[in-house]
Design a protein around this nucleic acid. Structure first.
Lengths: 124, 124
DNA sequence: TGAATATATGAATAAGTGTTCATATATCGG
DNA sequence: CCGATATATGAACACTTATTCATATATTCA
């Protein structure tokens, strides 16, 4: 592996930057958890579910009809959302009613929206 | 496909909820763009790169050494970040120096961090 | 121009992921 | 208990994706 300790062609102080980056790096565990959270948001079906639940709590059957997908597909994705603590649920008779777990989820959703809308591809 | 228009066993007003969800749903294009942005954040290598650039601008070689990965792997991921407008770059001699594209990126990073730290797995 | 450095990229492969299909579990009414 | 409804889940398959290897492009210096 080539070393980049010295470089005369640009003024970046490589050693400084590299050691700064290394010392300030996040723990691997944090990195993986962070990537995992974003990974869960990174699927259109799950985004649709989360956005629907952002507006109101809904049972599985409602989501199936609202998103026009199979019950199995919705259920599988709800499991992913559950396992990552992005949604919570309660049982009411035969129905299982889902809602967003905490406000962090809606904040992330909103920030994501804000980010893409800022690129003014859609507006005006 | 089974219809869930009427349900006597729980008090959720399904028709209302379903039609509300349908009418308030985001455009498909927005959904896919949103999922794509999160997808880009959803990889540990890219998170490491973004977090390093969150603290300071860096050239490719610096990132290679700081993250202890091959130049090719870093370069491929920088391309993904570039194509999704999460990083910008300038050339300086032979070096290409990368930095975060706008503050939306750091806000999303911070919100993600905030979300996982809030689950107090790591703290105190 | 030629050698060396810095970065980018195409192809291939291995690992991961979302949906479907079939089936299982759970709850309620009769 | 039995049938119907509501949800969950395992296996299989198609598709995507991250890394590696080899190589290409670009820039600087002699």
């Amino acid at each position: 592996m080539i070393k980049y300790d010295i470089c005369e062609t640009c003024e970046c102080s490589h050693k400084d930057k590299v050691s700064k980056a290394k010392s300030e790096a996040l723990d691997d565990e944090v990195i993986y958890d962070l990537a995992d959270v974003f990974k869960v948001f990174g699927d259109s079906t799950r985004i649709k579910i989360l956005y629907a639940l952002f507006n109101q709590e809904m049972c599985v059957g409602d989501l199936v009809e609202a998103l026009d997908m199979t019950q199995s597909a919705i259920s599988h994705q709800l499991r992913v959302l559950r396992q990552n603590d992005l949604v919570k649920f309660r049982k009411e008779g035969k129905a299982v009613i889902y809602s967003l777990d905490d406000e962090h989820v809606s904040i992330l959703l909103q920030q994501g929206l804000c980010h893409i809308l800022h690129k003014n591809k859609y507006g005006e």
